[in-house]
Design a protein around this nucleic acid. Structure first.
Lengths: 214, 214
DNA sequence: TGCGAATCTGATATAACGTCAGATTTTCCG
DNA sequence: CGGAAAATCTGACGTTATATCAGATTCGCA
């Protein structure tokens, strides 16, 4: 469980100078990802931005995807904070607050790491094993937590037995992720971020508890 | 509104031979997109697959994205069929059937055009104008139809006024799209396609009507 | 048949990839 | 402090892809 130490391509662990270079390369990659399509990311350009040569990049990463994979892992470090919010209560009006906290946390997570998460999901959908694994690792706790809430409400007869708790959890996460990545587009269409968070929170709440709040 | 006739890069409209070549290039692009990451699509390879030269490709498309954009437009031609299903009734048990039809239609649409739609959404999220436009054109009728159903149920007091009808429609579509693109992954985790469709249908139904069906 | 239009492609300049041998910088021991 | 060894970086290069254009090829039809 200890964070693996970064290595170079020949497997040697890195000293402080190397670590710094590597981190700079990662930051440059993320910055470029914010302004260019993932299809246009060039190793040369990443290197240029750091003031180093392409050969240096290849010392630390097999290719651009590997660098992005590292960024995805760094982004995943914020997630425990989101999972914590999910431990809130689900009864009555409090449940809606819990749902709002989750919805808001997702939007914020995507505001910070959107470009990187977008590539994570792309590669995962394209079937890339490594990206699937990190996506799975990041979201499974969230999905499972939601699924458990659904199951509890199913036992209490509040939610239909025809629903698969796990599929429901996944669906909600799917919705939150995509809406988070789209919310900038909505603002242009006159839907504020707050409305979006509120709407998603209510769908989430209603789905997992079966209850509607006026 | 008439389908614009395909042109080559100098604006000339195409004869039958050219049209066939162009279509072959598009098909090769789609086939390649099914097996390689979008980051790895190469014009040379598309050309090779058709048994022609890269120069021919550039006669018809500015670059790979333009070819994909054409594929996206072709894929969008199936959509009216989905929109039709949404005209079904929303009262009582019938509502759930309508929801199921929509959910199922989405999954089928993605089964057929997944690779292309994935790129459409990627480029749209990356901010590409053209891809945003076609995505918008394809999904707006669906979103608007759902939003109208939500509004009707809000007027009848069944759905909370705190929800933004348009955001709700978008959220549901977001969920359906992503779940459709993921369903293969779920099957590995023991959730069948049928369960997925049913679960999404119920979330959709409950969200737009405020009602739950046992 | 042969001409003009339509279509295709070889050749090429430009640019990125990815590797490796060797240069440069840092560390640290005597 | 001096200098060798370890760590880190990079110039140079063979390979592959992009994107363009002039000219070759193919087609329809008078």
């Amino acid at each position: 469980m200890a964070a693996r130490k970064p290595q170079d391509q020949t497997g040697r662990t890195l000293g402080p100078r190397a670590l710094q270079t590597r981190q700079r390369l990662l930051e440059a990659t993320e910055a470029l990802l914010d302004q260019r399509s993932v299809r246009e990311i060039r190793v040369v350009e990443i290197a240029r931005k750091v003031g180093t040569s392409p050969a240096t990049f290849y010392q630390y990463f097999r290719d651009v995807e590997e660098a992005i994979l590292q960024l995805v892992e760094q982004a995943a470090e914020d997630l425990p904070a989101i999972v914590e919010r999910m431990e809130g209560p689900w009864q009555g009006g409090r449940g809606l607050d819990t749902a709002r906290a989750i919805s808001d946390a997702f939007v914020r997570h995507w505001d910070t790491h959107g470009a990187v998460l977008r590539v994570r999901n792309l590669k995962a959908e394209e079937g890339d094993r490594a990206f699937r694994r990190v996506r799975q690792a990041a979201l499974a706790p969230v999905v499972e937590r939601l699924a458990r809430v659904v199951e509890e409400h199913q036992k209490a007869g509040k939610v239909s037995q025809e629903i698969s708790a796990w599929a429901a959890g996944s669906s909600i996460i799917a919705m939150l992720e995509r809406m988070s990545s789209y919310h900038a587009m909505f603002e242009r269409a006159g839907v504020t971020r707050a409305q979006l968070v509120e709407t998603c929170a209510r769908i989430l709440h209603q789905t997992v508890t079966g209850r509607q709040v006026a």
